[in-house]
């Protein structure tokens, strides 16, 4: 919910100051989750994309390109931070349970959480594939866009094939353990909306209302709110 709310809210603005304020509201949540180091790491990973955004926007947008680039970087940072928070804090099993609480059928909810569960596995497999190909003299960096695209085949084909094979294996393993044999099923753990959840939901609603209000009345906002760089 946090990830989606923040993503929608960031799409409301194109100006540096409001986006910066939205990012600031995220920071306490990141600190509260003790995820500052991991968050910083994922932001660092985006460094090249940031440079790319700045170069492209300053080159092609003549009117205040740099300001727009910074605003876009802030927007992406907020979205990444919100989604990182989600992936770093939510257990796939809890995700299944919460989807079921939202009356989504167990088969779909389970598939959804299974997809998340396999993200780290696929990352490890991608690394193994890279290692195996590099042992055959495969070079990661090649010059020219066509060569770079061609260069992806030795990595992507084995990754896709092993993922499909794994999907079949998992499906067989699940069916052999009676998955989907009963329509109605019970759960060992159940989740309930706690006071903390309510506080957090109210916080998100209030934040969204405030931001929508600011957006509607943007013209009457103080000048510093619309501040941008001269370039």
């Amino acid at each position: 919910m946090l990830a989606i709310t923040y993503t929608i809210n960031t799409l409301l603005f194109q100006e540096i100051v409001p986006l910066m304020l939205i990012l600031i509201t995220l920071l306490p949540i990141i600190l509260l989750g003790r995820l500052f180091k991991q968050w910083l790491k994922s932001i660092k990973g985006m460094f090249f994309l940031y440079i790319f955004i700045i170069v492209l926007n300053t080159l092609f947008i003549t009117d205040r390109g740099l300001s727009f680039a910074i605003a876009m970087i802030l927007r992406i940072t907020i979205m990444i931070s919100a989604f990182s928070l989600f992936f770093l804090t939510v257990d796939p099993n809890d995700l299944t349970l919460s989807l079921i609480a939202m009356r989504i059928s167990y088969e779909y909810a389970f598939s959804f959480s299974l997809a998340f569960r396999f993200v780290p596995t696929i990352a490890i497999e991608a690394q193994n594939i890279m290692d195996a190909q590099q042992s055959r003299g495969y070079e990661m960096q090649k010059k020219g866009i066509i060569n770079q695209i061609k260069n992806l085949f030795p990595l992507l084909v084995p990754l896709i094939i092993s993922s499909i094979k794994r999907a079949f294996n998992v499906a067989e393993a699940l069916e052999s353990r009676g998955f989907g044999s009963k329509k109605e099923r019970t759960f060992y753990f159940t989740i309930k909306y706690s006071t903390k959840d309510w506080i957090f939901t109210i916080y998100l609603i209030l934040l969204s209302i405030t931001l929508i209000f600011i957006k509607i009345n943007f013209t009457s906002m103080p000048l510093w709110f619309k501040w941008s760089l001269p370039v």
Partner: peptide
Amino acid sequence: ATLSKKVGIIFQNPTHQLFSNTVEDEIKF
């Protein structure tokens, strides 16, 4: 790339490296 000319590692899972259309192309790679 330089070291792989001297050291060849054959990994546990062969499916991690096969991607070509034919066996011949796989060796050629």
